[in-house]
Design a protein around this nucleic acid. Structure first.
Lengths: 220, 220, 220, 220
DNA sequence: TATGAATGAGAATTCATTCAT
DNA sequence: GATGAATGAATTCTCATTCAT
């Protein structure tokens, strides 16, 4: 009626996130979404140029703040202790996902499907993410241990950061609390940092790994 | 035509795993599958009572060997060193997933969707899996450090074990090799064991982490 | 395209009645119906939630006026001569069926199939119909001959009322005219009333029947 | 294995009659039939050249005895009292249908569908039936009342003879007994004969009924 | 901006039938 | 004679999208 376009768009995205997350993208119809948002289905095509566009809007609404968060910490390594920056980045990522746990689950699942039309969007976002992680990690550990296999670290870090949100019901059942609760985040943050510390001291603790024919990796 | 029921079923499942994995369950049509398996689409309903049944057959073909693998190691803790058993279980799980990396990706993605009719099947399998992990982990660390929060360990372990297969393209891009290659498995196994070792010494390190200046962070 | 929902629904029902009647419910495809109504087949699901729903709409469009017709006469027995009411009911039923002869044929055939999902709808309608017939007949004959076996009367009456419409082609061939013609209705009405009169005088004629080699008939 | 072809065919027809009757021809699959007859579905195509052929076999298995029954009585009018023959025919028809009530329901329903491939078969049988009925009725009443509209009589007779079997559940509910029970047949036979008598005296009785003060009737 | 009607493309599924054994 | 595998044709239905209002 009046200037409610923003509101309408918002409520569509909200409904879409809930439904895409629990029923999957293809398993959700735009009628489901329209019904939940109490709107006419035609609005979705109108505002997002189709279902696909709506999914992309969801992805964007995740990646934009997510990446600017990482970017911010990456920038700070110029004048702050990189290790502090990395730790803070990890914490922020956890908090952000916790506050957007449905959307997080949706995103981390959706990127495991190849033939999504959104592939291009996703790819460019993931490239950026990787770049920030690499830079942050290298800065945090690279100076001390130049031959450290940063790649492995990043993969493990990525897994640790996303798994609780992707498999939130698993976490609930094993740990007795949901990843959206801040207490879980605190604990989880703690154990990631622990792991990171010990991983950094990899040479000492893992004589065995060092002897493997791991390819030399150059840190930037 | 030819009495090759076994072969036909096999080839349907094979095609289904490939397509479900890359395009998603709903994104794959039974025609796609039939075309890839060079069969008539009606065979799918004939052999699996519909698309849903085919998905379930895929899940079963993953979980059955996967769980018996875990079960075997769980049984061995009666007379072998539980730590050895846990390590061996981890290794076997990695190798099994590496050999069935497509199927693994499919399974770990599919379980993140709520409203699947397969929910019951999945639930019962995941319950078993959790039980085996709990028993193995508790046996491996419990005796030494009875107050250890095993739950957190298991969540992290689960994440580490599945992430590389779920996000195989991520691994490829960061690490330069695919989780189906045995070289990756060796490396990855090594770092999990490392993590496990240091996690077991959690009390000591926890002390240290507690002293970190974990900066309070406001997210937008 | 055009906002003519009412018209569209109407024309679908019309086409459905024709086709269901001549080819049977299962023998008619929604494509046939859509083609005859010059519409897109999807409209049928859209307006009637599937083929089954369309059949039910047809049944309802028969039973609603049919039953209110009976109900009206049933109500009138309070202050009018019940025999007149019954006769008038019979006449109205014949005229109504004559004017809706295709639909009548469809309905009277369809109720002879057990496993229809529409069973519940049909059952409740038939229960009402029976109640009206019973009340009307009992009132018409009951006061005079309270112990008359009304059940048998009703069964015969039902048969007489529906048969010409169910087997309209039989009527055409034997009688040379179609049950939709009013001349037939007049004649047929006359002979039903005759039968009804004589049936009421059952004792006298029963005497004569008793002499036939048929077993003696006991009145309950 | 041995000479069981007859047995197999028999059991297929038996199963088909049950299922066609309750679920309708199109609503029954040959797999249903094969399952009930505990046979392989391929047998049906083998023995009856398809589902259609099976239906035709069912129709034939009804009409052959049914028509020879009528034919027999028709032949007898040459030397016996035609009225007796007609009554006997009616009785035999009722008994035959009672003993084959499922098949009767199937047949009388199926002939109300136009576009059956079996139309030719049905048509020729119905033509014969009509001929026998006409001959019998004309012989029974025609001599006495040459101006009687035999057509109307036949239509009513047809309706009376088939209705209880076509709507057997209706009969059950109103009358409290099933048309397959001989007690019902006796009663029903009685009332048809009554009707027939009075219909034959139509001219007289019509006059008489009009004037009728409906005398009180005492039941025995 | 918003809506309900309408549609076309395509999906899963059903099923009678065939065929080699 | 009998069977189970396999198929092709056809059917119902779903759904994103469009369009006139």
């Amino acid at each position: 009626m009046f200037v409610q376009a923003g509101k309408t768009k918002e409520s569509i995205i909200e409904a879409a996130i809930e439904l895409f997350t629990s029923k999957g993208f293809r398993g959700t119809t735009i009628r489901d979404i329209a019904a939940r948002a109490k709107l006419n289905p035609a609005n979705i095509s109108y505002y997002f140029q189709g279902k696909q566009g709506l999914l992309e809007a969801c992805l964007v609404s995740f990646f934009e703040p997510y990446l600017s968060l990482l970017e911010e910490e990456k920038r700070k390594i110029e004048w702050e202790d990189p290790e502090i920056c990395l730790h803070r980045a990890i914490r922020k990522v956890l908090v952000f996902q916790s506050e957007n746990h449905l959307l997080s689950r949706l995103v981390w699942r959706e990127i495991t499907i190849d033939s999504q039309v959104s592939r291009e969007i996703i790819s460019s976002y993931l490239m950026k993410e990787r770049y920030y992680f690499k830079t942050l990690t290298s800065a945090a550990v690279g100076e001390k241990h130049s031959i450290l296999p940063v790649g492995m670290l990043i993969i493990q870090l990525k897994g640790m950061l996303s798994t609780p949100f992707l498999n939130s019901q698993y976490v609930s059942e094993v740990w007795g609390m949901h990843p959206k609760e801040s207490y879980f985040i605190e604990k989880y943050y703690g154990s990631i940092i622990e792991w990171l510390q010990s991983a950094v001291n990899v040479q000492k603790s893992a004589l065995y790994v060092a002897r493997l024919p791991a390819p030399a990796i150059k840190t930037v």
